[in-house]
């Protein structure tokens, strides 16, 4: 927990703005969630396994005396599992008034993605996911960042099909790459 980065302290010092995103990587794809929703980012730590819980639940961790459920982003969206390594991070995010943890491969940075750089995705490209999961795609230089609605991805009641996110990534890459005359992302 020595590595914990407390974003909330910054938030109090200077208001985190709507268009600031925390960018993280899962299986080579960059995703963004609104930075104002993030409480802190922790290195991997001991997580108590919960028997009989949904498969995407990694377990429960002790966050300074509070019990916090931890979701594994890979398992949540049907990517193959990966051993945790030194880059693995737990993003602690506020959901329905409680902190919730999400395990991702790598946490990159907090960046500003201004409105004009956010491209809306035609619904057909994301039709395999429940509506509203993806709020847009941030196009920054050569990067393509899928912007997610934090609450929707944590909501138990609309779990997408396991492979849906992969389809969406393919589809989004094609749509965006075709629609704007940019070189396709690596």
């Amino acid at each position: 927990m020595a590595e914990a980065v407390l974003l909330r302290e910054d938030a109090e010092a200077e208001e985190i703005e709507q268009d600031q995103y925390l960018v993280f990587t899962v299986k080579g794809q960059e995703f963004g969630v609104q930075a104002m929703r993030i409480q802190e980012i922790n290195a991997m730590q001991d997580i108590a396994e919960v028997p009989n819980a949904p498969h995407y639940v990694e377990g429960i961790l002790n966050l300074r005396g509070r019990l916090v459920s931890v979701i594994n982003f890979r398992k949540r969206f049907g990517f193959e599992a990966k051993e945790h390594d030194e880059d693995t991070r737990i993003i602690i995010m506020e959901h329905a008034g409680f902190p919730v943890g999400i395990i991702v491969d790598i946490v990159e940075e907090v960046i500003k993605i201004q409105g004009e750089k956010v491209q809306q995705i035609p619904p057909t490209a994301t039709s395999s996911l429940p509506e509203g999961y993806i709020t847009g795609v941030g196009l920054m230089d050569n990067r393509l960042i899928i912007l997610l609605d934090a609450d929707r991805i944590l909501n138990k009641s609309d779990i997408p099909d396991a492979l849906a996110m992969k389809d969406v990534i393919d589809s989004v890459q094609k749509t965006v790459a075709g629609g704007s005359e940019r070189p396709p992302p690596q």
Partner: peptide
């Protein structure tokens, strides 16, 4: 320690201990 809303759905457990 009480569960958060996600953990409350886990059947067979009613809370946790540190």
């Amino acid at each position: 320690k009480p569960f958060d809303p996600i953990a409350r759905n886990f059947r067979g457990f009613s809370g946790g201990i540190i």
